[in-house]
Write a protein that binds this DNA or RNA. Structure first.
Lengths: 186, 186, 186, 186
DNA sequence: CATGAATGAGTGTTCATTCAT
DNA sequence: AATGAATGAACACTCATTCAT
């Protein structure tokens, strides 16, 4: 079962959800079709298991972000969280990709992922709200935007086969920190 | 041909690229399978045509953004551009969705979209650079991040069937403006 | 479509419903899988079409039986009907066989056949009732029994690969005529 | 092994032979797949064992029918035999059903059942012959027809989920008795 | 004797694509 | 140019059977 999940990650990474044939997964896992259907009721079910797993990791991220102040300390806090997010994303990149391939047709899957992402977003929103957001900033929309940005930024870099390096993470962090947390102005 | 493109938009919106059968498109367009293959060599080709069309609209956006100053005027400039972006996105949402469904398996498609998005990003990067970016900000990465954010933010709202209202656009604008353009600090 | 129906008859005759692969039918009909699913939504649907066809033939039998008197004329009437029944049965033997293979799992199919057989049975019951049935005879049960007998008799002969000859039909006719219609006794 | 046979009866009754998965039988019997194949070499073999068992019961029926006279006594003899037949049928209904599902594809099974039924039929034929059959009646065909009738009549009632009550059995008995045994006429 | 996890051949069904009219 | 009936490769999924423990 672990073997199948890992194999699925590999195959989803290579070909995406739709192009991934059960046959491929089974071959990589060095098992048989029968075994596949012993553990998962269908291909979708396998993805759901993977999303579930990724969801736990993502959910863990919301405890990884402490209060964010407007000064250098706050920046560091945010930067460290950004690093965690980036690591988690990269680890589960194939799952996210497969998830993207399927969301539209499977509402349940959508809900599952929404719940996971929701936790992170609400923690982030709370931090924004606590820091006393600049005028014109809606904490919830802002939090959603940050998650959106980081997620899609990674995706784009992946498409382009370019790494997400420190320069990139620093830039994202600075943008968010200045944009949402450093209320003091000259 | 126009009928087919429009029909494809409708069907892609409803079911995404993979679930969209040529049969559906043809039925909505009130033509025949034969006609479809008269104008497009295959389903992928149709999507490419659509992406091409969307690409032109997106490309037009890069001329829509003038210099952005750190003051209220700059904010307005950015806000207006954000509105244009949002409109364009919503208009071509089905195409973007279909595009997402397919990028991984079609490098050519990826390149096509990259070119379109690239124009916008580089204009944006130029504006950031021109404004004298805050320390720690890499203009190119920042521009990429902004596009990523706005794109995915719209996508998330669409999944959740929630509109992208003024509050949201104001928040995005403020975040970007404060984050990237208002260099002066207290 | 006609070709497919005919081919299905051939294959059902050879292997029964379950062992008949769509592939076989398609091969005999010299068409493709695609064509099969163009005309029938699935294997079961094909059988339903065949049952429907057989049903019409069977339904026509109920008009083939006039009043049955207790004398030689009545015997002849019954005998002629028995011949018709036998012919119809033999013509649609493969369908009946396939039907048998599937009834248990498909209630709709059961209903469809029930309706067809019901018509014949009720006509027969009416004839029995009109002739003034012997004591102890329930016309409806008797009619049902006659249909049951003739049907299964043919099936058994078919299993045994023995023909249903005139001796057999005469015997069945006499048995039914004496049993249900010749009320006068010495 | 007993447990498996009983379980098979239950499952065959519910779903017929083809739809009955070994898994179901094993689950009902509360044993394992391994155990199943310890006692039976395959699913078909299990059915053969069941048919064999049913065959013995059916074979016993042929000794249950004494000479049948043309009068009331003969009727009673026949009626009592009919009752026995009905009981036996109902007891082994699932086996018969499964048997029907498979006969066509398994000649050996056909032979096995033929032997069992043959004994009953020949006894019946002997009784008919002994009673001095009416003109036009072939004892062997008649005997076959009676078995066919009773068998299929029960099957039909089972499909329709209607019981085989005394009215039905009386009707069958009367029909057979008048049809085959009461030679005297007015 | 008993187990049940693992197997993989077999099959129904879908759908993009073609081509004779 | 337009049609739509026909095609068949591709794929998910089932289930009887085996065998190491």
């Amino acid at each position: 079962m672990r073997k199948l999940l890992d194999a699925a990650m590999v195959v989803f990474a290579r070909r995406g959800y739709h192009a991934a044939r059960v046959d491929d997964i089974v071959k990589v896992a060095r098992t048989s079709h029968g075994t596949f259907y012993l553990y998962f009721s269908n291909k979708e079910d396998l993805l759901r298991a993977l999303v579930s797993e990724a969801g736990e990791v993502v959910a863990a991220l919301d405890s990884g972000l402490g209060p964010v102040s407007g000064d250098r300390e706050g920046w560091k806090e945010l930067r460290q969280w950004m690093g965690q997010f980036s690591d988690a994303w990269q680890r589960y990149a194939p799952v996210l990709r497969a998830w993207t391939d399927l969301v539209m047709s499977d509402p349940e899957l959508s809900a599952q992922a929404h719940a996971a992402a929701g936790g992170v977003a609400s923690t982030l929103a709370a931090r924004v709200a606590a820091a006393g957001p600049p005028p014109g900033i809606d904490p919830n929309a802002a939090a959603e935007a940050v998650v959106a940005m980081v997620d899609r930024f990674h995706q784009l870099r992946q498409f382009a086969r370019e790494p997400v390096d420190d320069v990139a993470l620093d830039t994202l962090t600075t943008m968010v920190h200045r944009g949402l947390f450093s209320s003091a102005r000259g």
